[in-house]
Amino acid sequence: MPLVGNIRDFGLSDFLYLVDRGYKTGCLHLSRADEMASLYFDKGKLITATRKDDNVPVTELLVRKGKLTPVQAAQATQVHQSQNGVTLSQVLLNLELIGRDELQRVLQQHIEEAVYALFSWNEGEFRFEQGQRPDPTAPIMPTPLAVEHLIMEGVRRIDEWGRIRDRIPSTDMVVKFIEQPVERTKGINLAADEWRVFARINGKDTLAEIARKTGMSEFEVCRIVYGFLTAGLVDVIRKPAPVPMLATGRPLAEAPRVKKSLVTRIINRIRGM
């Protein structure tokens, strides 16, 4: 069953996170007024993206960019039509009409730009069709793209507080790493300012404190941390309020400790209902 919603409520970066962590394969269709885009994923990584106004075969795209001649494009298309289960991108590589690195570079640049433009959408319907594959002639990258990289770059283009505040409601919140952040950062290239903030994350300092220590504005720190957060590198938590203590030394707000025998009685009662 497709996942449906509006990116006003569940942002593109949130969805990319879900696709990544859920190792999803399928297509995310986005639509807004007369604009439409489709992002195809394989096991959580982006393989291609198309927009309604620019939905062309990989050969046409490469001809347009001067990487292929029309004759070579026709040759590849002809060979592709005689083969089953192979993408046109793969045929181009098999025929050695373009190098793997070059094909990756050209397609990645094209696809990234298509995706980054979508980050500016404040609203738009989305529908994720599980298992849906792109047309074999689509500009499919030889090496699928990790979405953390897309999230970070997409978030760099966010210049409004509104979206950031949804996840970071206050600069009094504390930033902490989630499990193995170093592993997660492998696919991400951080800019200098992002490193400055990254290096200050210690699970104790608030966003306001990080801003003060780095000399950056609170907005800039929040925007950068929003990117880390969306890419799943960090978590943002409320600074724990001081817990009032009882005379016994037990925290007032601690959840009551119950006896196992009491819990067993409740379990047995509910089982029997």
Partner: peptide, 18 residues
């Protein structure tokens, strides 16, 4: 609904004392 409550009770049980 029973299943949800029983699963919650299982979590509570793990934190309860003898």
């Amino acid at each position: 609904v029973k299943n949800v409550l029983l699963e919650l009770l299982d979590v509570i049980m793990q934190r309860s004392e003898d």
